[in-house]
Computed example of a mutant assay.
Amino acid sequence: MSGFVRVSCYVAALLSVSMAAPAAAEDLGGGFTVNGGATVVSDYRFRGISQTDKRFAIQGTFTVGHSSGVYGSVWGSSIDDYVAAGADAELDLIFGYKKTFGSTTIDGGLLYYYYPGSGGANTDFAEPYLKISQAMGAATLTGTIAYAPKQKALTVGNGKEDNLYLAGDLGYAIPKTPVSLTAHFGHSFGPSYLTIGDGYSDWSLGATVTHKNLSAGISYVDTNKSLYSPSGRNISKAGVVATLGVAF
């Protein structure tokens, strides 16, 4: 395991990675659908911390869903080698259940973070999550809780450690325009290897423009933590992140 930071990401949901523009899911029959996307980001940030030493990343996602609400996803991104003991990629394997009741959507499941190429180091871990979203006209308010129970991969030298992350997100689709605005605030409770010691907060403001299955976005990301990569860059410092995505 790297001696710096192996904070990783999901995101589709959890939480902070811009996804490609929405596209109609392809019907496979039997209640099954499939969709996916690819995105280029100028900096892969997860919970405010850069996973790419403040350089660009290539990301992709693929989801198979069922009309019952059950779904399975694979999300992947390039990463810098300080994240997970020399690994240059992150794969998030997700199994969940999502259902909408009126204007309220509940989404919960299990996320497994896998780092191919980490040379057998103890880097992989599991994190159950739960999100509740409330639509209010053109706005949507989402609360997220993600709890990684005690695991060896999260240790900071005191045996198995756990990690709790709480977040709130507000999205607003400007009526009669292709523009959506987002605001995010989250807090990671430490100590664990996801926080590198004490807990910290992260926040962001962003905007996305969509056209058919294409999207372009920009966001301002910041934290109240100070964390440096082996190259000497402050990977928790405020920065602007640009994204370009395509959905299929």
Rank of each mutant, 00 (worst) to 15 (best):
Y147M: 15
T155S: 09
L130I: 04
A148G: 09
N163P: 02
D124R: 03
L141G: 01
L154W: 09
T142A: 00
V156A: 14
L166D: 02
Y165V: 11
G137H: 09
Y147R: 14
E127L: 06
L154S: 07
G137P: 06
A146V: 07
K131I: 00
A153G: 05
A167P: 08
Y165H: 14
T144P: 04
I145V: 15
K152P: 06
E161P: 01
N158Y: 13
K131V: 00
Y129M: 01
E161R: 05
P128T: 05
I132C: 11
T142H: 02
P149C: 02
A148I: 12
Y147D: 15
A138K: 12
T155L: 07
K131D: 00
P128C: 02
D124V: 03
S133Q: 06
A153D: 08
M136T: 12
T155F: 10
A148F: 08
Y129A: 01
G159M: 07
Y147E: 14
I132K: 14
N163M: 05
Q151I: 12
K131N: 01
S133M: 05
A153V: 09
L141P: 00
I145M: 15
P128N: 04
L166V: 05
Q134G: 02
L141Y: 05
D124F: 04
Q134D: 02
G157D: 04
T144N: 10
G137N: 10
S133E: 03
A139K: 12
P128Y: 02
G157R: 14
I145K: 14
Y165Q: 15
T144G: 08
A135N: 10
A126E: 15
G137I: 13
P128Q: 06
A167Y: 12
L130C: 03
I145C: 11
T144M: 08
Q134T: 04
F125A: 04
M136W: 13
F125I: 07
P149H: 03
V156W: 14
I132A: 12
V156Q: 15
L141C: 00
L164Q: 11
I145F: 13
T140S: 13
M136R: 13
L166C: 04
D124T: 06
A146N: 09
G168N: 06
G157H: 12
S133W: 08
A126P: 12
Q151H: 12
A153L: 06
P128S: 04
V156P: 11
L164M: 10
N158P: 07
A148E: 11
T140M: 15
P149W: 01
T144R: 13
A135M: 12
G168T: 07
I145Q: 15
